[in-house]
């Protein structure tokens, strides 16, 4: 049996909101250590890797490994019925064909219960764990979201170049071109505003703006985003959870 209680429904709401426009359904793999998901979008360009560690939960138990096939649109509708501050418990028997979702209002004496029908999802897992990294950039997630939105107005591609002491984001299209350069900065009073860049090899990569638009839907999950880049390889965009992460692997664009 699986039972996981979130201190606040808002966390699961944000996670599902960040995923549902990229993949319509996916398997939630539940073990005694927590819940993980790997899912690829229809075009096979963007991969989502989610880990919600056991410590994220107020209470967690999973006696036997369970795979829950979940339609994210339906899941999102049901979780949307709870208030952000409610306790949210997900519950499934070992051979369940539904997932129980329970909201508890912390002030009123009110409990709401829903059942979501589970799906049979046949999906291949990809071996993404052994990736090398040539450059790592950490910056405020809101800044990254703004850069992606601003550059998308110019072009369907965003070029990222990284050198020893700066990262440059640039786009060029029919109406013109633009660029944003960021440099490392340590802000002791506001550590969430700090920017770090570490580099083994210079980077010049281009990514599809529409996929970046999907990625930045995770912005509310974390004040920071870490971008790991390797020449001629997918980029990794990581939003840390209180205990775990939501990562996106995005295949690059190439010169034809």
């Amino acid at each position: 049996m699986l039972e996981g209680k979130f201190e606040e429904a808002s966390l699961l709401k944000k996670i599902v909101e960040a995923m549902k426009d990229c993949v319509s359904s996916c398997n939630f793999n539940c073990t005694e250590n927590g819940i993980s998901v790997q899912a690829v979008d229809n075009s096979r360009v963007l991969l989502i890797s989610l880990l919600i560690e056991k410590d994220t939960f107020e209470e967690y138990r999973c006696d036997r490994n369970i795979t829950l096939g979940i339609g994210l649109g339906s899941f999102s509708k049901i979780i949307g019925n709870g208030a952000n501050s409610d306790y949210l418990t997900i519950q499934a028997e070992d051979d369940a064909d539904t997932l129980g979702i329970i909201f508890e209002d912390k002030v009123k004496d009110k409990i709401s219960e829903y059942n979501l029908k589970l799906l049979d999802i046949d999906a291949d897992l990809l071996e993404v764990d052994a990736m090398e990294t040539d450059a790592t950039i950490t910056l405020p997630s809101a800044d990254f979201a703004k850069i992606c939105k601003d550059m998308k107005t110019l072009s369907e591609s965003l070029q990222i170049t990284v050198t020893k002491d700066s990262a440059k984001f640039q786009s060029a299209g029919e109406i013109g071109s633009g660029s944003v350069v960021i440099k490392p900065k340590t802000d002791i009073d506001h550590p969430e505003e700090s920017i770090t860049i570490s580099l083994d090899k210079p980077i010049d990569l281009s990514f599809g703006s529409k996929y970046l638009s999907d990625i930045i839907k995770a912005t509310s999950l974390s004040q920071k985003v870490t971008i790991k880049l390797t020449e001629d390889s997918p980029g990794v965009f990581e939003y840390k959870l209180p205990s775990g992460y939501l990562r996106f692997y995005l295949a690059p664009k190439f010169d034809e």
Binding site: V40, S43, R44, V45, L46, L47, D124, L125, L126, E127, V128, S157, S206, G208, S233, P234, Y249, A251, P252, K253, F254, D255, E256
Partner: peptide
């Protein structure tokens, strides 16, 4: 003009 690659050209199946 740039072409979009897919993840399958980088990652094998588990």
């Amino acid at each position: 003009k740039k072409a979009q690659s897919t993840l399958m050209s980088f990652f094998g199946k588990k």
